[in-house]
Each structure stands twice: as structure tokens, then as C-alpha cells.
Simulated assay, not measured.
Amino acid sequence: MNLSRIAKVAAVSVLSAAAALGLWHSTVGAQEEPVVIPRPAIDFPVAGSEAKAIFAGGCFWGVQGVFQHVKGVKNAVSGYAGGEADTAHYDMVGSGQTGHAEAVEITYDPAVVSYGQLLQILFSVAMNPTQLNYQGPDHGTQYRNAIFFQSDEEKQVAAAYIAQLDAATVYPAPIVTTLEPLEAFYPAEQYHQDFLTLNPTWPYIVINDLPKVEALQKLFPAVWQKDPVLVGTL
């Protein structure tokens, strides 16, 4: 039984009822508060006009929604990474037994935004890297925060950045983000794509995810773009 999913649905139902009664109607802070952090001291140039990065940071709705508003991002797809192809389905991943994490595949132009800048956004506004196997209200290994690296360079940059942030004590607890080699990325079901953009008034989105998008605009104005890059039909 997917208790995390049931809890999410129950919470949304309660909040929806409260909104209907006029007891709740405004955006409140997400459980993962944004943090002002320095840029990575180590980055690396990526050749070509297109590259991919795969990040996991809790529910993929919010992570996708954040990166869809970053200049230089050409696409951001919600999906699964860390497990096998035959278990890359929402109902199975939700059991927490498949090895998968809800993840987002980000296709970006390295001439506009670097891998290091994407990491900075991830750690600053898209997730709380000190929460082990959960993010906000969502609990389970499927909601772990992880960087799925595709090369030694990506792994080195990510590891160095985690060490840099821990040394600077910008968080009240150590970073628990895992570095995992990418075996494969599997796009999630169509109804998960562009979920934040298509459902901006859904209570779960309002509470947990819209504050992250707002923080991106406030803390990273140089890379903010108002109109999100949408997946559309896969």
C-alpha cells in the first residue's frame, strides 16, 4: 500500500474542503524553505548546444515546475530513475520497493546555463538536501534527493559542491543527497507532465511547489523566464 500517496491525497482533500469553506485561501511556505547559497567553486564546460541532467528532489511535480522556468532549459520531463524498466510505473514506484526515485530529466543549453548553475538552483530552491528519504509531506525512498550522474565530470562537480556547501554550513544539518550512476531514465505517465503549470490552484501545488517557483524568480532573476518550457505530448 502506498501510504505516502494516500497521505498526499488525504491532505489535498482536507485542504480543498478548507478552501471551499473560506478557511484557507492563500499561499503558505513550503516545507522546503529556499536557502541562499554560493555558486559551485568548481564547474565544467559542456561541449555542444545540448546536454542533459537528471535530478531527484522529492515529488517531481515541483522539481519539474522549477526547472521549466530556467533560461537555457529546453525541456524538463518528470520520470523515474534508479530502478528497472518493468517497475517504472507510478503505482509501483510509490511502494518504495522498486529502487526508483521520482526524477526529472533536464535538457539544457550549456552556453546559457551551466551544470553547476543547475545544481545551485536544485540545492537552493527545488529541494531540501538535508531530508533523508523524504521531502516535505512525501516519505519513502522514491522521494529521496539524488543526482544521477552520467560522467565522471558530473560526479566530481556534484561531490565537490556538496562538500563546499557542507563546509560553509549553509544548512542546519549535513547534506544527504546521494550520487548515483544513471542507468536509465524513464518518462512518467502523461498526466504527471506539466502538472504544476496545468494545476496551479491545486492545494498541494500551492503549498509545496509554487513557493519554490516564486523563490527561483526572487533568488535567480538572471536565469528566470516567465513562460515555462512545457513537455506537451511525449
Score class of each variant (00 low, 15 high):
M1F: 09
N2C: 07
V9A: 06
A10E: 12
A10V: 12
S13K: 12
L15S: 01
L23R: 14
S26K: 13
S26N: 07
Q31M: 13
E32D: 12
E32M: 07
E33N: 11
I37E: 04
I37V: 06
A41M: 03
I42T: 07
D43H: 10
P45Y: 05
G48A: 10
E50N: 09
A53Q: 07
W61P: 05
W61R: 04
V63S: 00
F67D: 01
Q68R: 14
N75R: 15
V77H: 06
Y80H: 04
A81H: 07
A81W: 10
G83R: 02
E84D: 07
T87P: 01
D91W: 14
M92W: 13
G96C: 08
G99I: 07
H100P: 14
A103R: 04
V104K: 00
V104F: 02
E105P: 00
A111I: 05
A111V: 09
V112M: 08
V113S: 04
Y115W: 07
S124E: 06
A126M: 12
N128Q: 04
Y134F: 15
G136S: 09
D138P: 08
T141N: 07
T141D: 06
N145G: 06
E153F: 11
E154P: 01
K155N: 01
K155P: 01
Q156G: 03
V157T: 10
V157S: 03
A160T: 06
A163E: 13
A163Y: 08
Q164R: 13
Q164F: 13
D166G: 10
V170Q: 05
V170R: 09
A173H: 09
I175S: 05
V176I: 09
L179A: 01
A184S: 13
A184I: 05
F185G: 08
P187S: 06
A188C: 02
E189T: 05
H192E: 05
Q193F: 10
D194W: 12
F195T: 11
L196S: 00
T197D: 14
L198Y: 11
T201W: 02
W202L: 15
Y204C: 00
I205M: 08
I207N: 00
D209A: 03
L210K: 14
K212V: 05
K212N: 04
V213G: 00
A215L: 12
V223Q: 03
D227V: 15
P228N: 02
L230H: 01
L230R: 09
L230Q: 04
G232W: 11
